[in-house]
Design a protein around this nucleic acid. Structure first.
Lengths: 104, 104
DNA sequence: TATTTGCGCAACTCAAAAGTTGCACATATA
DNA sequence: TATATGTGCAACTTTTGAGTTGCGCAAATA
């Protein structure tokens, strides 16, 4: 099943995993220790993140270190770009409002 | 039920609605015409987006125009900020790699 | 070689979310 | 006033997703 990055970050556990691996690469066991759920549950989250390439595995003997993939994360930034214009406009309107209040 | 913006943007229909209303405010009927589903299904997506304040209603007679709320969308941008450092680092490493190759 | 450890896969349960139909209600229009 | 239109709410079905337990396999260790 092809995963979608927006669906991937909709789960709080997966967002926490991303925050952890952004600091340093971790094995599934190391991640599971941080959460109050079974290793297999965490493993399923890892699978989702891996399928959409937000993390990348690095095999080391019988251990697997998962690394953060910053390049993929940038796709969110690209999606957000379409709205940047909107918030600039809304802030300019706020500025105008504040100026109007000040003048009165 | 309190909605969360990550869950809200995880659905492709809701992302499409956001793209539409970012351009101009629309009524539920106007939105429903754009999608291959019933008006009520679209209405439920609108409800989710409204509950987490990504859109804001403006009543006009019996019609309701939903507006994009850029301020709320910025929360997503703020979350992304924690990873910006990561992609700068990964890009610097790429730069170094390219330099190394060039020197050889 | 026997045992432990780290991991992924499969089957299952349970809860949540997406979509449907039907209805009620208020506003617009004839 | 009678009818049509725009909307939200409720009940229901179906799909999806999170979590569990149980298993098998390969690498490390005794």
């Amino acid at each position: 099943m092809k995963q979608d990055i927006f669906q991937a970050i909709s789960d709080p556990t997966r967002r926490a995993i991303l925050t952890l691996v952004a600091i340093q690469a971790l094995t599934p066991n190391a991640m599971a220790e941080k959460f109050d759920m079974t290793r297999q549950a965490v493993s399923k989250h890892i699978k989702v993140l891996h399928e959409c390439e937000l993390i990348r595995p690095e095999q080391s003997g019988r251990e697997i270190y998962y690394h953060f993939n910053a390049k993929k994360m940038q796709e969110f930034d690209n999606w957000l770009a379409q709205f940047r214009q909107n918030w600039e406009i809304q802030f300019n309107q706020l500025d105008e409002l504040l100026s109007t209040i000040k003048e009165q």
